[in-house]
Every structure is written in structure tokens, then in C-alpha cells.
Amino acid sequence: MIVFVRFNSSHGFPVEVDSDTSIFQLKEVVAKRQGVPADQLRVIFAGKELRNDWTVQNCDLDQQSIVHIVQRPWRKGQEMNATGGDDPRNAAGGCEREPQSLTRVDLSSSVLPGDSVGLAVILHTDSRKDSPPAGSPAGRSIYNSFYVYCKGPCQRVQPGKLRVQCSTCRQATLTLTQGPSCWDDVLIPNRMSGECQSPHCPGTSAEFFFKCGAHPTSDKETSVALHLIATNSRNITCITCTDVRSPVLVFQCNSRHVICLDCFHLYCVTRLNDRQFVHDPQLGYSLPCVAGCPNSLIKELHHFRILGEEQYNRYQQYGAEECVLQMGGVLCPRPGCGAGLLPEPDQRKVTCEGGNGLGCGFAFCRECKEAYHEGECSAVFEASGTTTQAYRVDERAAEQARWEAASKETIKKTTKPCPRCHVPVEKNGGCMHMKCPQPQCRLEWCWNCGCEWNRVCMGDHWFDV
């Protein structure tokens, strides 16, 4: 396979590697080409510095992935760790964990309700045991953590790749202090920090972006993250068709209702045909949960890209028209025109101005929308079919299609509260000796007794199943 190397943020060049090629071997190839010592090179990928003893497969490097290699003399205490030698983080029983690669970060837990604080980093599902597709590297999971809308060759929703760059020099040479644990960490600028490894760059702020994971991409090709779309790892039924499908869209209502993408497309087109989208002054033209839940309008309007190009163009047109109407304007009634106009409040005669090729020149009556006339309008008909009709959803289907309910059931079956801080902690095999993952707590306690870890627990039921 081919990976592209950008040395000291210059133009990239291809390097041929195998899945079992080590990072140090990659350094040696680059060092020979650039005429520099291999031990002064640092390989940066997806916000993480890659260790010498890791392989291309370990690092989730795919065909035509772009890695950054910078030349920086080692500072005291760094060289041993980078070589894969006596790194205290690798000691058996050590409590410190390697910062998780962005290629394996899962933010789907952050669609849980606000009262489930902490689960994004504490609760991990076991539903990723799908067998890898044919042709994928051994052991590589097909679980997708992110979804994007690819405006490039795909023109559809695709699995996405999370990447990070330095907000100062805009190069992907920043190593994160810690990985993101929720969508806010990724979507809110300057929320996460790190250290830029580019020479002479003092940058410390992280800037995240997404790429389409279905095809090789260049540095400049980015895609918009659709953070309401998630892999259906909890096997929730769709609120409309009641099938279990994946991926799904999880509405931001209190129940976190789930809808499959085909039904979401149908829901949007139906509402669009009836012009029953909601115009929100802050958000724009949007839709609420299909069950009509309060405070559930979709905030990231790129989710409506699921409509496809033709329907999305209609959505944008109707949204612009609705904006004009909300501002007190009118639409030209001549067939084939429909231009938005903003006449004076007491102006009865409205002319669709033909300047700049935008208007048709038609003069019409503001009251009856017919060709302009003197005197009273002959008839004014009330528009028919403008009443909002509820999208029919079966109550039982709505009850079963809740992301929140599956989460709470998982928590109930696989977790116990920490005796000190009461945060839910998952036990997935292993011994009875637990350690609270909350940095402010870190209590060592017994899963069996529910009390602080002691010699009695150690001698009596340390390794009970």
C-alpha cells in the first residue's frame, strides 16, 4: 500500500509500505531520502505521535493516508518512550493509558441525555464484534464512529474520518494533550489543546475536521460531520418502519427517538411537499423529531443533505422563500418566477423588478396576487391545505425507538455506581478489583462488596467470576 509523507509540512511524497511495516522502518526510509538522522524524526498522525514499535496496521493507516513527519531533536526523557523501550505506560498493571487514536474515538455516547454525564468515556458498548469485510486488514473493525456528507465523488452519507490540525499553522502536526470525549470537544473551536510539532510553531489549540472515509482524499478535501447519525450498535428499532437498520439518525429530543435514513428521507420529502418545515429565527429551515417532541429541531442543517441534490435544492429554495415571508415580504405569483420581494408595508401595487435578471417585471396586487387592478379585489380565496398535519407515529413504536432507553438498560445490566462519587462504572470481565475512572475520584473498590478495596476482598473473592 501507499502512504503519503509530508516532511516538515512540505509537499508530500509517496512511500510504499506493508501492513506489518513498523513506524521506525518508515522513519528509516524517510531519513534516507531526506539525509537526516532517523532518531530525530517524529511521525504524527490523527493528533498522535506514533511509536517506533507500532506497525502501519496498528495505527489504522489506510491506503493513501497522509502522515506528517517532522525533524525535531529529542528532548530529555522522550527518546526512550518513542523507541518502544522502557515506557512506564506499558508496564503490566499500570494505570496510565495511551491517548486514544482519533481513528478509534467514539462519540456516540454523547447523544445520551444530559443526566448521563461521564458515560462518553466510561461506558463502552460490546456491539462492535462484526466481522471485518472481505479485503480489510485482519482485526480491523467495521464499526463506524462518525458519518459525514461527502460532496465529492460519493454525493451521499458516508463513514467519516476525524482529523485534527494546529489552529495556528493549519498543519496536521499537532499532538493532542488528551483525546475528545464528546461532540462539544470536536465542534467547539479551541476547546481542546495540544502541542504543535512543526518547527518554530508555538500553536497549542486544536482544530478538528472530518474527511470522507470511503475514498482517498487530499489535504484540502473536508466534509461536514453529521453528528446525529450513528451506527445502530444498540439495535434500536426505527420509529417509523420498526426495522432494525444501521446507520440511524438520533433526534435530540428527551427520548432520543431513532429513525433509519430511508424513513428520514421520506419524512423530509413529505414535509417538504406540504411546505411544513419549521422556520426558526436562529436555526433556519428545519424539522423536529418525527414524533413531534418539543425542543427537538435539527440544529445542523447539513443533515438535510440526505435528501439528495434535487430535493436539497428545493429545500434551500423553500427556506429562502419562507425567510422572505417571515420578513413581511411577498413572492411573485407569476408561474416560473417566484422571486422574493420586500415592498413597503402599505404598498398595494407590487412590481417584480426586472433588474439584474432576477425579476420578471410582472405587476400584481398584494392582496389577491392577481395582475394589478384598481378598486376592490374580486375574490380572495383562503389558501387550502395549509394546516399542519401531524406525522403519524405509532405510540408503541415510539416507545421502542428510544436510544436513551437502550442506554439505561445497558447501564443497569453492566454497571454499578462507584461507592464514593456514584458514577456508573462498567465491568466487562476481569477481577473484582475496580478503579473509578473519574479523575477527581480514582477510588479503588470491590465490585462484589461495593466497598473500598481491602485485604478481605483480596483474599476471599479477588478473582471470582
Rank of each mutant, 00 (worst) to 15 (best):
F4K: 13
R6L: 06
E16D: 04
S19E: 10
R33H: 05
R42G: 05
R51W: 04
N52C: 03
W54M: 13
T55W: 02
V56E: 00
Q57H: 07
L61Q: 01
D62N: 14
D62E: 15
Q63G: 08
I69H: 01
Q71K: 07
E79H: 12
N81M: 14
R89H: 12
T103Q: 14
D106K: 09
S110Q: 12
L123G: 15
H124G: 14
D126G: 09
R128S: 11
D130P: 11
S136R: 13
N144E: 06
Y149C: 03
G152S: 14
C154K: 02
V157A: 07
K161Y: 10
K161C: 11
V164K: 02
C166W: 01
C169K: 00
C169E: 01
T173V: 06
T175I: 15
C182Y: 04
L187I: 08
N190M: 08
M192F: 05
E195I: 12
C196L: 00
H200L: 12
E207T: 07
E207N: 07
E207F: 05
F209N: 11
P216D: 14
S218A: 14
D219K: 08
H227C: 13
L228M: 14
N232T: 00
R234W: 05
T242A: 15
V250G: 02
V258A: 07
C263Y: 00
Y267C: 02
V269H: 03
Q282M: 10
A291H: 06
C293N: 01
P294E: 12
P294M: 07
K299L: 05
Y315T: 12
Q316T: 13
A320D: 15
Q326L: 08
G329P: 03
P333L: 02
P333M: 03
G340D: 04
R348E: 05
T351H: 08
E353W: 06
G354L: 10
G354H: 09
G355M: 12
G357Y: 12
L358P: 14
A363P: 06
C368F: 02
H373T: 02
R392I: 11
R396C: 10
A398Y: 08
Q400M: 15
Q400I: 14
K408E: 13
T414F: 10
P417Y: 11
M432Y: 05
P439M: 05
C441Q: 01
L443T: 13
N448A: 08
C449P: 01
M458D: 10
M458K: 15
F463C: 01
